[in-house]
Design a binder for these strands. Structure first.
Lengths: 360, 360
DNA sequence: TCTTTTCATGTAAACGATTGCATTACCCTC
DNA sequence: GAGGGTAATGCAATCGTTTACATGAAAAGA
């Protein structure tokens, strides 16, 4: 069996209390004793039992991360950012994927993280008011990405700004018929990002005196395939858009796929702008609104550290900037030709470098 | 303060032992008592303290996952697969990213997961013999992906078979000058996947009487950018390859990017085949060797469940099949024209349809 | 009717740390 | 030299469960 603190105490000829103090580097231990303890621990290959330690101290050394997906690019980047900071401070990372509806419900009915984590990080989860309250009632610091929960720490980008920039970019290129592929679900339950972006889209259009047309908003649910369908829907309109703003790169990828499959091209036939600056956006030449993804994870973790160390009393809110990255899927509206001309292959040199690898 | 088992016991007018049994659904509790306990627990919003529970029982209800990256597509997919199975059995997932060299060393010198997890899952980590032994000495079941550790459970694909298929595909298309972008590091420390694939590549070539040329092997370290550089290196050879096998899709993406930047095309100038079937492989039309990624995660988790439940005594080894997915980045060698002709744009329709999926 | 089982429950000893408080020894200072 | 402060250490309670064992009552068997 593994050695316990008692074994170490015996071997170093001190009490367990002293061992505990020596090992954790607390003051009021003489140098000689500390060394004796360290040596004994080393010789016995002693490792503290985290459970006993947590039980006695009330601290768990663990931070819970709850999120809707672990396998999507965005989330894995954020988790990587969180991990790098937490690990540097010897905090463990307990991952909780609430993507499945049943898992989500169970989570909030049983609160399995209660007393199990020192802090909580919530990534982009649609939560009801009751659920938010449940989180807060855990009495640990909570840092939230993308949503707003009263009393919690916050990191986010300026979604309105980012979306506006994207749409303005299209308008500046001369587009007037601009579609949006939204990520909204039926029941957003407080996950306001899609709402904010959609609102910005509408606002910018109206500021440019472009009439609002609900048909130009197609829901895509943040997935590639859904983005593809949304684009198909937009293209089937009697008067299809000449430019499309997809509020995630993944959906934009789907949109590009649809274009390719229909023998159309970006930006010749339709301009496409995404959101995120996904790692393959560059590959595809996608114009997009870049946000620093892993960095946001780091910031969340830092907030947690501040809260845990007491360095900072009141929860703070950090807003990180976005920036437009113009690549080759957006172009001047004048370049767009009437759609029917494009259904046959076109000869002639092509305008553009990147982005053409795309298989059709 | 949160209610403890004592509070519940008092309220239900039974002993804490009975509460414990009732709550965990153990036998030898009368129906009436169980209900009384359940009600009391409910009324007090009682939740067991996982630490106290682990300390007393020795079980932690947690599975550790150690891996070299959390933010790469492959790993996040595998983690998602693991998570889905573990979660269904109420096991928690403790994530340990050992990508950083210092973190890796610390991990093996302090063994922070000792007594902290009931089982361990190891993803594609390069480990020294001593490190493998350290894992085994934790005395918990260990399931390994992509490496071999004596005494552990294993899930893997048939790398030799997969790589051979890819290279044979190119040979069948008439290619004789075939490069490989390898993922090998200087010190693989037991992470044999790249070695096996490289060996298969060489073997297939020699079986086809194609002379071996070390210049045609360029290291890419599994990243997009490194894949791009590797391709650049291959193209700069006096006698560049007409086809390239990249042992990951990410590196293949990089390779395609280099081609584009140089004004070249797949498959007209160079055929490219990848490995993984990354989600954007379809988007880019990349021919690739598909492996079921999330599924391997599920299998690992299942093995752990088997080991934990005692359902299966001896560690098993599961090999999952790969399959070649032919898309539009590979084509007949005859189609490849001498390189210098391609630096000017070419007209004409393109040859290919959509992702024909071919079972090998 | 008198054992013998079986079932439901209680008692109390782990599990392995942390930590408030008490104790000791030593050094200052007036 | 007595009182007082300080640094190092030990004692023992505590954290919240689980579980081996003991107990008693009811059911079953002889």
């Amino acid at each position: 069996m593994a050695a316990s603190i008692i074994d170490v105490a015996r071997r170093a000829e001190v009490s367990t209390a002293t061992v505990s103090r020596a090992l954790r580097g607390l003051p009021n231990v003489s140098e000689a004793t500390r060394e004796r303890v360290l040596r004994a621990a080393e010789e016995l290959q002693y490792a503290v039992s985290p459970h006993a330690s947590s039980l006695a101290s009330g601290r768990t050394g663990t931070v819970g991360v709850i999120l809707p997906f672990v396998n999507r690019w965005f989330y894995s980047q954020v988790v990587a950012g969180i991990d790098s900071v937490l690990r540097a401070h010897d905090l463990d990372l307990l991952l909780y994927n609430l993507g499945d509806e049943r898992v989500h419900e169970r989570f909030f009915s049983r609160m399995p993280l209660r007393r199990r984590v020192d802090a909580l990080i919530v990534l982009n989860l649609p939560l009801s008011a009751a659920e938010c309250e449940a989180l807060v009632s855990m009495e640990v610091p909570v840092a939230v990405l993308g949503t707003r929960i009263p009393g919690c720490w916050h990191v986010s980008i300026d979604n309105a700004e980012g979306a506006s920039t994207a749409v303005r970019h299209l308008i500046n290129l001369g587009h007037r018929r601009i579609g949006m592929i939204t990520g909204a679900l039926g029941d957003p339950r407080g996950f306001t990002t899609p709402i904010v972006r959609q609102h910005a889209y509408r606002t910018v259009l109206s500021e440019a005196d472009i009439p609002y047309d609900p048909d130009l908003e197609a829901p895509g649910n943040f997935g590639i395939d859904e983005g593809a369908s949304a684009m198909a829907k937009l293209l089937s309109l009697p008067d299809p858009p000449t430019a499309v703003f997809a509020e995630s790169d993944q959906m934009a990828f789907g949109a590009l796929r649809t274009l390719n499959r229909m023998g159309l091209r970006a930006p010749d036939d339709v301009s496409v702008v995404g959101f995120d600056n996904h790692e393959t956006a560059e590959l595809l030449g996608l114009t997009t609104v870049a946000q620093p993804v892993a960095h946001q994870g780091e910031l969340l973790a830092r907030q947690i550290l501040d809260a845990l160390s007491g360095a900072c009393e009141e929860p703070t809110q950090v807003v990180v900037p976005t920036r437009l990255v113009v690549r080759s899927t957006t172009g001047a509206a004048s370049a767009a030709r009437p759609r029917h001309q494009h259904l046959s292959p076109r000869p002639g040199p092509e305008p553009d470098q990147n982005s053409r690898t795309t298989a059709r």
